[in-house]
Nucleic acid binder design. Structure first.
Length: 349
RNA sequence: GGGGACGUAGCGUAGCCUGGUUUAACGCGAUAGAUUGUCGAUCUAUAGACCGCGGGUUCAAAUCCCGUCGUCCCCG
């Protein structure tokens, strides 16, 4: 069964329009996935997401493995039912947490030994276990294998080891994915993740080997981890050129509105990023004429909406002055309204 | 009528006893930035007090002394 259709290519850039078919429906790309790490896009309900036009979200296997854990999600009959989200879900493996929670873990070729950031309990993640959890327990539409993501800057030797390990894990993930029975009638998708830090030869080797193994889509990880913006553009643009055009391309963890435009022009189709929701909770709104830090005093008596031309729930009903007041008072509605606006903006973009 | 405590940025306090590295410190608040596979988090800056007021002692006073105003408490 074909899970991907490329139906239009831009003439002046590498941008394209595609369709991805998942167990919970088709999505059109380019697409932005709001981040719902712990089975919730923070502050937003399923209905809020529908109202923003969201077709797919991201959740995180590592976080959900720790809490609420396998048993509860199984009883709920999968992540979609548990969180009442009927559309596609992509789950991240926890590879990024290997990086972001690095003082609690030890990485080896076998997998990752780590302590829960919640209660200190010791766990071991193997690539196989991570696939099983996403495929059979969560019932993810798009599954990401365990990978090893490194910080910038990173010595080449270290970057090479992490890349080789990511490849090894990718191979084992594919094996595990293919040998286990399908949990859902439609085909769940498994993506490969290109690592290799900022080294073109490492990135190239990783991409080529992943393509040999064969995945339903290809992600580029290990970007926006502290490197200068221009370098991120260079790396991601180069890697996009190494990936097959008949598969979706996913740039993980990116980014700002400008980053997305740049990446779409380079041929990427799928994105996720905490920026719209995180900044939403911190009072920063995105508009086509720039960012607004709604906490700023200049908005205290500005009774216009965040963006006059925006059709989101927040802009249709509330003013900048009111939202500033909410932030100023620590009221939770503010977090939600700006999150709604930013998600709507990103989806529109 | 008698006795006592306290007045230091918008708010809450430290420093006073034992005067001098104090350009008066800290927390909250304010103002402005950061935030890229999550963060109701955190970080970074900036502004803001001539130490209630007046006088005195001293080379030197937020600090010691006198007076005064204000706030609070206790006794009658």
């Amino acid at each position: 069964m074909e899970t991907f259709k490329l139906f239009h290519k831009d003439k002046s850039s590498k941008a394209r329009l595609t369709k991805l078919i998942t167990p919970h429906g088709e999505i059109n790309t380019p697409i932005f996935l709001p981040v719902g790490t712990q089975a919730t896009v923070k502050t937003l309900s399923t209905q809020d997401l529908f109202d923003c036009g969201i077709e797919m979200i991201l959740a995180n296997a590592y976080h959900l493995y720790l809490r609420p854990g396998e048993e509860i999600i199984k009883k709920a009959r999968g992540l979609h039912k548990f969180m009442s989200w009927p559309k596609p879900i992509l789950t991240d493996s926890g590879g990024y947490q290997v990086l972001s929670l690095s003082d609690l873990r030890k990485v080896s070729d076998e997998g990752v030994k780590f302590q829960s950031h919640i209660d200190g309990t010791k766990y071991f993640f193997s690539p196989e276990e991570v696939i099983r959890f996403q495929k059979d327990v969560l019932g993810s539409d798009v599954i990401m294998p365990l990978d090893e993501c490194v910080h910038y800057p990173c010595e080449k030797d270290h970057a090479r080891v992490a890349m080789k390990r990511t490849l090894n894990w990718a191979y084992r993930s594919k094996e595990a994915f293919s040998s286990q029975p399908l949990a859902i009638s439609h085909k769940q998708l498994l993506f490969g993740i290109v690592q290799g830090a900022t080294y073109p030869d490492l990135r190239k080797e990783c991409a080529e080997r992943l393509v040999e193994i064969g995945f339903d889509g290809y992600a580029v990880g290990g970007v926006s981890v502290g490197e200068p913006r221009e370098l991120m553009y260079e790396v991601s643009s180069n890697v996009a050129g190494l990936l097959p055009s008949d598969r979706p391309r996913y740039l993980m963890g990116v980014g700002n509105p400008e980053d997305l435009i740049e990446a779409v022009s380079s041929g990427y189709d799928i994105f996720d990023c905490v920026i719209p929701t995180r900044n939403g909770r911190n009072g920063t709104a995105f508009t086509y004429s720039g960012r607004l830090v709604l906490r700023n005093a200049k908005f205290k008596d500005d009774f216009s909406p965040i963006d006059e031309n925006c059709g989101c729930f927040a802009c249709k009903n509330y003013t900048r002055a009111y939202i500033r007041h909410l932030f100023n008072s620590g009221e939770i509605l503010g977090l939600r309204l700006v999150s709604v606006h930013n998600i709507y903006f990103y989806n529109n973009l």
